[in-house]
Design a protein around this nucleic acid. Structure first.
Length: 667
RNA sequence: GCCGGAGUAGCUCAGAUGGUUAGAGCGGGCGUUUCAUACGCGCUAGGUCGGGGGUUCGAUUCCCUCCUCCGGCACCA
C-alpha cells in the first residue's frame, strides 16, 4: 500500500502562530487529507522548534524559566491548529526526550564517519548584544567596525571553540543528487537557485556553540550545545522514533517537506548533507522539498509595526475554518507569493461558495423537494446526452484534481472542482426539470427522475472533491444529501470514478444554507469584528502598472490623517561618507550625520543617479524613524528622500533649500 | 555586477514540442431563465501575448538584444 509522509517546518516559539504559519500548515493538512482519500498510509507531522539563544533571551526578558516559556509557546501552536480543521498525526517538540536522543545519535554517526570535527569559530562579536555578526552586517566607520544594532559599539574579533560540519565534502554528492532527482527541490526556479549556490562552493558549518546553554548538548562534550539547524532539521527523523522502530521503517523517508522560501537552504543543502554524513543512502533521503512563497496582507508586507498581522483563529471564528482554508488554497498559486485580502476573501466567498456551490446544493434540494416527495423512487432509463456530458465532466474534474494534488497544486485541484460546479449549474439550466415536470407525460416524469438523480450524484462527487480543502462543509453537504461524512480508510481509494446516480430521494433534507451570503451589512459587521479600518474594507485602489505615463498622474496613495503623517520623523542630515555597496549597481552605503553621537548608516538605492563622491558633504532628508532593514546584507537605518524622474538614473534629492543644522526636523 | 525566474484582456492567472477566430475566473456592459441564497445561464473584453531585431512559408510560442520587475549571491531565522 502506498504511504505518504509529509511535514511542515517546526515553528520557532519566539513567534506566535500567524497567517504565514497557518498557511503552510493548512496546505499540509489538505495534502494529507488528499492522500488519506486515496487510501494511503499517511503521516502528517508538525511541531515546534524551541532551542537557541533567542529563546533563552526571550524567556529571561519575561523573567520566566526557559522551560516554562517554551511549554507555553509550544502549547499556543498546538492549540492553533484544531480550530482550522487541521489534523496532524504527530506534534514534535525539540525539547522532547525522543527528539534529543535521535539528534545526539545522528550527531554521533556524523562524527564517527569523520564529518564533524573540532575547530575554532572566529567571528566578530558584540559584547553589548552578545551576538556574532558577519563583516557585511557591520557598520563601517573610520573608527572601526561598529555593531549594527542597539548600542553601536565596536565589535571584537573573538575566537570560540566549535564543532564544524564538513559540508564542503558534500558538494559533488549533493549536485549529483539534485541531478538525479530533478523533483527534489520544487518549484524549479528554487532548484536552480540551490544548484548554483552549491556550485559556488560550500564552506564547513559551525554547528555548536559554547556561548549559550539552551540547546541539545553535544555528545561527549557538554560545554557545547548544538547550533540550531542540526537540532531543528532532525525533527523530521526523530518524530518517527529511532531508526529501526516501526514508525521509522513505515514512513521514512519523507515524501515532502513543505517549507517557506526563507529556509530553503537548510532543507535542500544542509539537511540532505547531514543525512549523507550519517550514512544515509540517496534513496533514504527526503524525496521532495516544496518551497512556497510569502503572503502579503491586503497588499502590504506582514509586519507588527503595520499592525496587520492576521490572527488565523480569529478569521476562522468569523468566517469558519473551511472558508479560510478554501480562500488561502484557492487564491494563492502554491509556490508563488500571494496576497491575503479580506475584500477578496468575501468576493470569492460570495461568488464561488455562496452563489456557485451553495446555491447549487440549495436549488437541487429545492427541486427534489418540489418535484419528488421524500423517499420517492427515481427511475433509471431516461438519461441522455446531457447526463452523459455531465458524468464526463465529473470524471475530468476528478482526474484533474488528482493530477493537481499529486503536483502539490491545491489551487488547480480546486479549479478543477469548480469547473464541475459550474457545469452542474449549467446542466440544471439546460435540462430544466421544472419544464419537464410541467409536461405531465411519462417521458417528462422519467426525465425529472433522471435529472434529479444526476444532479444529486454530481453533488455527491463534489462533496468528495472538496473534502481535503473543506472537510466540515463536505460533511454538511452530505448531511443534506442524506449521506454520512467521508471517513477515509487505509487501502481504500475514494477517488475512483464510480458514477452511480441514486434510485430514490430518501434522506434528502433542505437545510440552512451552507454559505449564507455576505451582504454589505454583514460585511461591515465582519470588518468591525476583525478590527479592520474602512480603508481596508473599501476596494483597494488598483495598483498602477509602471508605464510610460508621466509619473505625475500616478494614482494618489490612500488618504491619511494628520496623525498618520505625524508618525513620520523626517530629519535633515549631512552625508559624511559614502561608498558603493559591492555587487550592487544602485545601492549606496552612506554614513549620515544626523546630530547623533555617531553617524548613521543608510543604504539608498540611488546609485544610478549619484556617485559617492558627489554626495559627500551634501545635505539630505532622511526618514529618521524607519524600521531598520537589510539591503544586500547591509544594515540600513532610514532612507534618503528623492523625487523620481524618467528613470532610476534621473532622481532628484530632496534637501533643505538652505543649510540647516543636522538633525533638524522636517515637517 | 553575476546567476536564475518572470513580463499574455481592467484584475488574478492558464496556454501553445511554431500554424486556421490566444483562453478561464473575477470586475464592467448587454441579454435571458425561474428550481434556487436577487441566485443561474448566455453573449460581450476588439488584448501590437514587455520593446526591437533575426530564423521561418508562418512566432506570442525558437534565437539575439534591450527595458522593467522579482528572487539568490551563505553560517541570518
Amino acid at each position: 500500500m502506498a504511504r505518504y509522509y509529509l511535514t511542515t517546518p517546526i515553528y520557532y516559539v519566539n513567534d506566535v502562530p500567524h497567517l504565514g504559519t497557518a498557511y503552510t500548515t493548512i496546505v499540509a493538512d489538505a495534502l494529507a487529507r488528499y492522500h488519506r482519500l486515496r487510501g494511503h498510509d499517511t503521516r502528517f507531522l508538525t511541531g515546534t522548534d524551541e532551542h537557541g539563544q533567542k529563546i533563552e533571551e526571550a524567556a529571561a526578558a519575561k523573567g520566566v524559566e526557559v522551560k516554562a516559556f517554551v511549554d507555553a509557546a509550544s502549547a499556543a501552536f498546538r492549540a492553533a491548529w484544531p480550530p482550522l480543521n487541521i489534523e496532524n498525526d504527530d506534534f514534535v517538540r525539540t525539547t522532547e526526550r525522543r527528539h534529543i536522543e535521535v539528534v545526539q545519535d545522528l550527531w554521533r554517526k556524523c562524527q564517527e564517519n569523520g564529518f564533524i570535527y573540532e575547530g575554532t569559530y572566529e567571528g566578530l562579536y558584540c559584547v553589548g548584544c552578545e551576538g556574532y555578526y558577519t563583516e557585511k552586517e557591520l557598520t563601517q566607520t573610520p573608527a572601526g567596525m561598529l555593531c549594527p544594532l542597539g548600542t553601536h559599539k565596536p565589535v571584537e574579533r573573538v575566537k570560540e571553540p566549535s564543532f564544524f560540519f564538513k559540508l564542503s565534502a558534500f558538494e559533488k554528492r549533493l549536485l549529483d543528487f539534485y541531478e538525479k532527482n530533478p523533483g527534489f527541490v520544487s518549484p524549479e526556479s528554487r532548484r536552480n537557485e540551490v544548484m548554483s549556490f552549491v556550485k559556488g562552493g560550500l564552506q564547513d558549518l559551525s554547528v555548536s556553540r559554547t556561548s549559550f546553554k539552551w540547546g541539545i548538548p553535544v555528545p561527549g562534550n557538554e560545554k557545547h550545545v548544538m547550533y540550531v539547524w542540526f537540532d531543528a532539521l532532525t525533527n523530521y527523523l526523530s518524530a518517527l522514533g529511532a531508526p529501526g522502530s516501526s514508525l521509522h521503517s513505515r514512513f521514512w523517508p519523507p515524501d515532502v517537506h513543505l517549507v517557506g522560501k526563507d529556509i530553503l537552504r537548510f532543507h535542500t543543502i544542509y539537511w540532505p548533507a547531514f543525512l549523507m554524513a550519517a550514512g544515509y543512502a540517496d534513496a533514504e533521503l527526503p524525496r521532495k522539498v516544496f518551497v512556497h512563497g510569502w503572503l502579503t496582507i491586503n497588499g502590504q508586507k506582514m509586519s507588527k509595526s503595520l499592525r496587520n498581522v492576521v490572527e488565523p483563529i480569529k478569521l476562522a471564528e468569523v468566517f469558519g475554518a473551511d472558508v479560510v482554508r478554501f480562500y488561502l488554497l484557492r487564491e494563492v498559486a502554491f509556490g508563488q507569493d500571494g496576497d491575503f485580502s479580506h475584500a477578496q476573501l468575501i468576493n470569492r466567498y460570495n461568488s464561488e461558495l455562496a452563489d456557485s456551490l451553495g446555491n447549487l446544493l440549495n436549488r437541487t434540494l429545492g427541486l427534489c423537494q418540489k418535484l419528488r416527495p421524500s423517499g420517492a423512487a427515481l427511475a433509471r432509463g431516461a438519461e441522455g446526452e446531457l447526463e452523459q456530458k455531465l458524468a464526463e465532466q465529473a470524471r475530468t474534474a476528478l482526474l484533474g484534481s488528482i493530477a493537481s494534488w499529486d503536483e502539490i497544486a491545491p489551487h488547480r485541484a480546486i479549479d478543477s472542482t469548480w469547473v464541475l460546479i459550474r457545469a452542474a449549474n449549467k446542466y440544471i439550466d439546460e435540462s430544466a426539470p421544472w419544464a419537464e415536470a410541467k409536461k405531465a407525460s411519462p417521458e417528462g416524469t422519467a426525465r425529472v427522475d433522471a435529472i434529479l438523480a444526476t444532479a444529486l450524484e454530481t453533488l455527491r462527487w463534489i462533496s468528495v472533491l472538496i473534502w481535503p480543502v473543506m472537510p466540515d462543509v463536505s460533511t454538511k453537504i452530505r448531511q443534506q444529501l442524506g449521506m454520512s461524512a467521508i471517513a477515509p480508510k487505509q487501502g481504500e481509494d475514494v477517488l475512483v470514478m464510480h458514477w452511480e446516480p441514486r434510485s430514490d430521494t430518501s434522506g434528502l433534507a433542505v437545510g440552512t444554507p451552507v454559505f449564507p451570503k455576505i451582504d454589505a451589512d454583514r460585511q461591515a459587521e465582519i470588518f468591525t469584528a476583525l478590527g479592520l479600518s474602512e480603508v481596508v474594507a473599501e476596494k483597494a485602489p488598483e495598483p498602477v502598472k509602471p508605464g510610460k505615463q508621466p509619473r505625475a498622474v500616478i494614482e494618489p496613495a490612500s488618504e491619511i490623517t494628520y496623525e498618520d503623517f505625524a508618525k513620520l520623523d523626517l530629519r535633515v542630515g549631512r552625508v559624511v561618507s559614502c561608498e558603493r555597496v559591492p555587487k550592487s549597481d544602485k545601492l549606496l552605503k552612506c554614513m549620515i550625520d544626523l546630530g547623533e553621537p555617531t553617524p548613521r548608516q543608510v543604504v539608498a538605492g540611488i546609485g544610478k543617479s549619484f556617485t559617492p563622491e558627489g554626495l559627500v558633504g551634501k545635505q539630505v532628508t532622511v526618514v529618521f524613524n524607519l524600521k531598520p532593514a537589510k539591503l544586500m546584507g547591509q544594515e540600513s537605518r532610514g532612507m534618503i528622500l528623492a523625487a523620481a524622474g524618467e528613470s532610476e538614473a534621473d532622481l532628484a534629492l530632496i534637501a533643505p533649500e538652505k543649510d540647516r543644522p543636522v538633525g533638524t526636523r522636517v515637517k
